[in-house]
Write a protein that binds this DNA or RNA. Structure first.
Lengths: 279, 279
DNA sequence: TATACTAATGACTACTCGGTCACTTGTCAA
DNA sequence: TTGACAAGTGACCGAGTAGTCATTAGTATA
């Protein structure tokens, strides 16, 4: 899919951005490192902004949909929290370059819609964690669940710094187990909430949460363009039809989703379709 | 003390940096906002880098020494944790502009020794929290105290985002109480540590922790230059003598420290001297 | 008022940056 | 071999930057 040039640029830019930051890295530096000319860069990306947007999109969609898939497919409640933490920190370790960029550029640095995009990804992640918390601890944490979510995010934030700042290899297994313990302790004992339901609604005020059908069709179209002819491509075509006018039964739709959701390029579209069809 | 011009620049630059980021803000913008010329800027600061360094120095020294003072002067253990959290988030709320800059520019954006400075401030903060944890929970948390410290820092990180991203006024009192509860719950129940003593030593490897006498004298000298003749100035002079050749008894030294540590310009030097003389 | 000195100015320099485009190179089918 | 078209090049442009310095304004002293 002539992605090679784009990928080459993205991989090299990722490292440079992680080292120096986005604004401190020039297009010249990127092209030098890739061994290509400046013109070639602008054949692949319309602008420098489009490049970092593509980078952020690529990693966050991958990460978010993977987590959601994990939570959805892990049937054993006893394992879930461990698997969640393990996957999170394993990802941070493997993609520490990207984690650095996220931390560095997480604010309204340049573009306004870039910020909105970041925020909506964060919301999706929070939603997934909330679903997990509700499933694991149920009504027992009804009043304190949002504080639990925030505590979990706090653990993630703090301990992920270890992977970013220190290059020491860390035992993700032990880390995950110790955080499972902390989380369960908090879930069992918290009485005093800070983040109430009203507060959450105040936060979400003004942030679009639902993905429109048009947006979904757009994502599907782009995904279809990216993948070769295969069972996944056919399944996605059928899902597109289903989206335009529903004809298939739920089990059939679910089966089509199963077909595509392990394909590397389909993870994001599968995540969005899962949410849309209510699986 | 002809600090007025410097302060004018620092206050306006703080807001611009918080809005747009350091690199995206030009010196021209700063001087325009201050209503001064570019030349006047360079009379106050040698470079743009020196400006942000001064900003970071000012706030972090203030914050660190204030926290340390709080922990040292609060005699009632039952109040300590609450007072700690309350002060932390109250500071974040009052200086949210600076908090934004810290988050945005917290990485090795430009200077290498800037990074080292940041890291050493972070270490000092961690040290203070550790002392607090040890004092409050003692041997009971001996194996898990570093995880407790990291959890506390995680809470601080996560909940402080609320002050930065959302402009809603938040009830710091309720927040502090709910975090006190979480912290005490964790302290009581954590069994599985992740951050062991060896790991901590691995992290601290290569980071200078002790402030040399020469550096201390330098800070004293600059502080003396900043403050007017007063009882504080005289006390600091005496402490300087004591540093060069010890003659006074411990109670006398402690008294001198008491004299200076509430003066706005002396908080940092008082913090360093407290640590040096072992109070 | 004249003098001396500091504070302040803004036009200016030297430079870097993102982005463009006329041009060259490589690769096909005819 | 030719021609057509896509892929790739890098000199160049305009905009904007940090930092400088000859000049001026303001002020206190003699």
């Amino acid at each position: 899919m002539h992605m090679t040039k784009k990928q080459l640029i993205m991989e090299n830019a990722l490292e440079l951005f992680a080292e120096q930051g986005f604004e401190a890295t020039s297009v010249q530096q990127i092209t030098d490192r890739c061994g290509i000319s400046k013109g070639a860069f602008y054949l692949a990306f319309k602008s420098k902004d489009e490049l970092i947007l593509a980078l952020i999109d690529h990693f966050t969609t991958q990460f978010t949909s993977n987590i959601d898939y994990l939570v959805n497919t892990t049937k054993d409640d006893d394992e879930l929290l461990y698997k969640f933490y393990y996957f999170v920190f394993d990802s941070f370790e493997r993609h520490s370059d990207f984690a650095k960029i996220l931390i560095k550029e997480q604010m309204q640095s340049f573009n306004e819609d870039f910020m909105l995009k970041m925020r909506s990804y964060d919301q999706m992640m929070e939603q997934t964690i909330l679903l997990m918390v509700e499933r694991l601890f149920g009504d027992a944490v009804d009043r304190t669940k949002h504080d639990l979510v925030y505590s979990i995010k706090g653990f993630m934030k703090m301990y992920s710094e270890l992977f970013i700042f220190y290059n020491t290899p860390l035992d993700v297994d032990v880390l995950a187990r110790s955080l499972v313990e902390k989380t369960e302790i908090l879930a069992k004992h918290i009485i005093t909430p800070f983040i109430t339901n009203e507060l959450v609604q105040q936060f979400q005020h003004g942030i679009c949460k639902e993905v429109s059908v048009d947006q979904l069709l757009d994502v599907i179209e782009r995904t279809l363009h990216d993948i070769d002819a295969s069972i996944e491509k056919d399944s996605l075509e059928l899902l597109k039809q289903e989206l335009l006018e529903p004809t298939l039964s739920r089990p059939l739709v679910k089966g089509l989703l199963e077909n595509i959701q392990l394909h590397p390029h389909c993870k994001w579209v599968a995540y969005l379709l899962r949410k849309h069809f209510g699986f």
